[in-house]
């Protein structure tokens, strides 16, 4: 090997070591979490059992059948699904208008909608509290859904608008010439073309509602109405934390996240680039 080749292979080696290290940092914590979920209480406190020599399913039984976990899961699913439904309908309507009609000040409207994503959540949740109290919506899922729409809707509009703007006019026009009504053309031409993109939008809406913590912790008080994120706190006691149960709950709640991730990881940039801020 020449000097140049050696230098090149050392470079590649360093890059690999760096990448492997980054993967360990990214995924490693969860390996430990999942391992812990299968441990008994004694094993968790035993340093020689970092990698358990025997597994126990007690934690899973307890979390699934003797805690409110399933209930929280259903609550979160309900709140996120309704939020997603509202956002998809409203954002499809708005985006069709913005991309297919001449709206006076369309650019300004789009920019202001994007702007609202930048409001600090804590500034909004103070007046939200007063408004929700006046509307008697504190401690209700409907109230929470409205709050979630406040940050998923702008995002959905912005993304759907980008999606519709990318669909050429001609598609729709040729359908109209073939005798389709405007509404018919929309459902038979636009929707099928936009379907994959809309699906990803829905997933993003769903996930941002699913993972929300602050609003849920402020506005929901009744234990049985909690969402899954806030429900995690059940396993955190005043003085002790039930690590086995908590890590089992974490493991279980990661399942939908993994599904979501598998479906969107190729569409990440499009979504993230277009006016999203992860708060």
């Amino acid at each position: 090997m020449t000097g140049k080749q050696i230098k090149k292979s050392i470079e590649v080696l360093i890059i690999y070591i760096f990448l492997i290290l980054m993967v360990l940092i990214s995924v490693g914590p969860f390996v430990y979490v999942v391992l812990t979920a299968f441990k008994t209480q004694e094993q968790i406190y035993d340093p020689s059992q970092i990698i358990p020599t025997y597994v126990s399913f007690d934690n899973f039984v307890k979390v699934l059948f003797h805690s409110n976990f399933i209930r929280y899961f259903i609550n979160s699913f309900f709140v996120s699904a309704v939020t997603t439904g509202i956002c998809v309908v409203l954002s499809v309507m708005a985006s069709y208008a913005l991309s297919r009609y001449e709206i006076i000040g369309a650019d300004k409207i789009k920019m202001s909608i994007l702007m609202t994503r930048m409001f600090p959540g804590v500034l909004l949740c103070i007046p939200f509290y007063i408004i929700m109290k006046q509307l008697n919506l504190i401690d209700t899922h409907s109230g929470l859904i409205l709050l979630y729409c406040s940050f998923t809707l702008p995002f959905a509009i912005w993304r759907t608008n980008a999606l519709f703007s990318g669909i050429p006019w001609e598609l729709e026009e040729s359908a109209r010439i073939d005798g389709c009504s405007r509404l018919g053309a929309f459902f038979h031409v636009i929707i099928p073309v936009a379907r994959p993109g809309l699906f990803v939008n829905m997933l993003f809406c769903f996930m941002s509602a699913w993972e929300e913590y602050m609003y849920a912790s402020i506005f929901i008080n009744t234990p049985l109405k909690k969402t899954i994120q806030v429900g995690m706190k059940d396993f955190v006691g005043q003085y002790t934390i039930e690590w086995g149960l908590l890590m089992t709950a974490v493991t279980l709640s990661l399942i939908p996240v993994i599904l979501f991730f598998a479906m969107v990881q190729n569409n990440l940039v499009g979504g993230l680039a277009e006016g999203s801020v992860k708060g």
Partner: peptide, 16 residues
């Protein structure tokens, strides 16, 4: 694999 942390809900990450 290096993207995984992005997908994890904030509170789950905090607990972890």
């Amino acid at each position: 694999l290096t993207l995984v942390p992005w997908a994890v809900p904030p509170y789950i990450a905090v607990m972890t």
